[in-house]
Amino acid sequence: MGVFSHGKVVTVLQYFTPMFQDYWHTIYPVTRRVDIANDRFSYFYDISSKAMSFSGRFNDQGIYLFPGYDGKDHIHSLEVAQYTLACWLSWRKTDDVYWLNKAMLHSDWLRENQLDDGRWVISHVNPQYSDLGESWCSGLAQGLAISALIRAYEHTSDISYMNAALKAADFLERDFELGGLKRSIAINDVEGFVYEEYPRDKLSGVLNGHISSVLAIFELSHYEERFKISAEENIENLVKILPLYDINYWSLYSLDGVISSGFYHRLVINQLDALSYYDKRFESYKIKFSSYANNLLFATKALINKIGSKI
């Protein structure tokens, strides 16, 4: 794998502008607040293009296949979870039963392929994180799957989908030391936690993946009373740890010092924008990170430092 994910020129261009996009680097628009209030199927930002613009393959059962870094197609539970959520949003956008059927098919896959402890296993090796091994789980996969399964429950009233979402959240909340994904951190006098997207022995702490998990717990708290406290703790914790990702000209992708690409920097801005609807404390960081993205000097510095870290 090269310096940039999937070797895309778009990755470089997005340091300077969101105008250039492709399937792997789509700047998802933040959902209007009135739409979130009026439609329980809506999501914080619109990822429907992840389904509607997919031109890849499906297996014989119609399940989304991820074109892997090894050049082969894989059933990848993280990508399936994201695709499932995107299908739900596509259905609401188009009112086309095609997307409803896709959403239900993939929601069923998530329910049926969840392990007893609530996690989904990923068997595809990411060359950037070869120390994960050949079988791992992800906070991002858990979070996206929770949000997808909530919508399956909302549509069908079938409690099995909600039970799967609750099991997924319980695993997400399990301490890292006990084999879970919630990892305690203490950096520069800041004590908190992250939901690990890549649960390696070494701290990773990917910001966008953590926020996706936070959003899932927040959604689940509207259905299950016991997650209300977790949702509140997540908001306070995120406010506390956000400064760790601020390098005064750009954002860090993760707490092991990896600088965000243009895409992930802009994705986090949109995540913070969505969160600011519920807590205004996130608005200051949305504005701050946006100012970095709009500064040509800062964007160039981030790109140069990103390239330098890969050489």
Rank of each mutant, 00 (worst) to 15 (best):
S49R: 11
S291E: 10
R119H: 15
E236Y: 12
F4D: 00
E173G: 05
N295C: 12
L132M: 08
R33T: 05
L13G: 00
T94G: 09
A293R: 01
A103Q: 08
K167Q: 14
D35W: 02
D46T: 06
N163C: 04
L149D: 05
C87Y: 03
L242N: 08
V30D: 02
D60R: 13
N59V: 02
R33E: 12
Y223V: 03
A169E: 04
K228G: 11
S261V: 06
F4R: 06
L140T: 14
G139Q: 08
Y28I: 00
M104D: 00
D175E: 12
Y292V: 02
Y153W: 15
G7F: 10
W250N: 01
K8C: 12
S138P: 08
R151F: 04
S123F: 12
L140A: 15
G139Y: 10
I287Y: 09
M162P: 04
V194Q: 07
Q114F: 02
F218I: 09
D189F: 14
Y285G: 00
L140K: 04
Q61I: 04
H155E: 13
G2R: 15
L272Y: 08
T31I: 04
L89F: 10
Y292R: 03
S53P: 00
C137M: 09
L203G: 05
S107L: 07
S5H: 12
Q271P: 01
G118C: 02
A165C: 10
K93G: 09
S221D: 09
A164D: 04
Q14L: 03
D60Q: 14
F20M: 05
Y23M: 08
A165P: 12
I187Q: 11
I287L: 15
R40D: 13
